[in-house]
Structure formats: C-alpha cells, structure tokens
Simulated assay, not measured.
Amino acid sequence: MDAGYCESCGFFEDRCGCGRGRVLIKGRDRVRISKFLSGLLRHYPDRFGIELDRRGYARLEDVLDILKERYGIGEVELRAIVELDKKRRFEISDGKIRARYGHSVDVDVGWTEDKCIPEKLYHATSPENLASIMKSGLLPMRRREVHMTATPEEAIEVGMRHSNTPVLMEIDTRRMAERGIDVRKKGRVFTADHVPPDCLRVVGWKKT
C-alpha cells in the first residue's frame, strides 16, 4: 500500500482519514526500499560503507545519504516506512537507525526473554528442507536465529517467498522451555537459537 503523511492524522497507509494528507511513497517503491533497508541493516552494511555499532545501530544521516542516492527519498519518507511497518522491523532513536531483528552480522540488539510466549508458534519452509529439519531441527542457517510466527498465516506468507508449496510446521514452545531453550519476542516475530526436532510437528502445506 501507499504510504503518506498528514499533519492531522500522522503517517497513514493507502488513504488519509481526513483526506488532507499526501502520499509520500507508492506501494511498489515502499516494498523495494524496505527490502533494501533490511539487507543494508541486517546483512551487508559494509558493502555500502555503513558502520553498525554493537547494538546494530547505524547513523541515520549515513543511511539517508544512501537512500537519497538510490531512491530519491528523504527522512520523512524513511520515517513513514519505519512507522508503518507491520512487522516492526526497524527502529529510529537518537539520530540512529537499526533493524530490530534478523541479523546475519554480529550484533547484540539487547532483547530480553518475553514471558508471554504463545504455547504454539509456526514456521514454514520449502518441502526439500523437510527431511533435514526433522532430523536436525530448525537451525539459523544464514541468520543468527530461527524465526517463528504467532499464526500459521504469517508463517505461510514468509514461506511463500521461497517456495510455492511451503510446508507448515507447528512449534511446541513449552517443550522448548523444558529443554532450556529460550524463545524471544522481537516485534511481531519470535526467535530462538535452535528448535529441536522433537519440538516440531508438520501440520500441512500451501498448495498451488
């Protein structure tokens, strides 16, 4: 959806409530920029000369310079992307910006264990990965943590990025706790260092 700003309503998606706001970024551009920002702040800051501190923050000014050159946007457009992101992937604070989770670079975002973890979480993956997962469990692979969602629908949405027929798995977080494995809540995503096979159950897959 398009992203915009209104002096009365604040940042909005698609249409402003009072009708006086203006669109800042078209939906397609918003998706492209969000994907680039995720990669920049999670995986390849060095490629663009961006330095992350230990908590994963980059200087907002440096990131804006890159976004202006590549996409022609400024701070208000970037703040619209951050504020309206439903997965709360980004955070701006004290002249700095970071990805809140999902890093493959070595940072410590400082999250603590959340005590309100659902008993069941979900993860979807390509069918060709299933045999390995049921033998070794879910591993972070190129990320630093395994990502899980609160609903099957969210997991399928993520899984569809990698396969037209993703396998949906249900994760027993109570059993993980009994095994001494922490589950952390980061925005709308839940993460863990590892999910053992005996904490997983295949519940279905998305068919074409």
Rank of each mutant, 00 (worst) to 15 (best):
C16N: 08
V23P: 08
C18I: 00
F36N: 04
I25D: 04
G21D: 06
K26E: 13
L24G: 11
L41R: 12
H43W: 02
L40T: 05
V23R: 15
K35C: 10
V23C: 13
G17Q: 14
V23I: 15
R32I: 14
G19Q: 06
R20Y: 06
K26T: 05
C16M: 13
R15W: 01
R28Y: 13
R20F: 05
G39L: 10
R20W: 09
D29K: 09
Y44C: 05
Y44P: 00
R28W: 12
H43I: 00
L41A: 07
V31M: 12
D14I: 02
Y44S: 03
G39K: 14
R20A: 12
I25M: 12
L40E: 13
L40H: 07
R20M: 14
I33R: 04
P45M: 02
R28M: 15
G17R: 08
R32F: 13
F36A: 09
G17T: 00
R30T: 11
P45T: 06
D14W: 05
R20S: 09
L41S: 02
L40G: 02
R32G: 03
I33L: 13
H43A: 01
S38P: 00
G39V: 01
I33F: 09
F36E: 07
C18F: 01
I33G: 02
L37Q: 09
K35D: 15
F36T: 01
V23Q: 11
S34N: 10
F36C: 12
F36Y: 12
G27P: 07
C16G: 00
I25Y: 04
G21W: 10
K35F: 07
I25R: 02
Y44Q: 03
P45H: 12
G19C: 08
R28A: 15
G39M: 12
H43R: 06
P45D: 05
S38V: 04
R32K: 14
L41C: 02
R30E: 10
C16E: 03
R42W: 00
V23S: 13
L41D: 03
G39Q: 04
G17E: 15
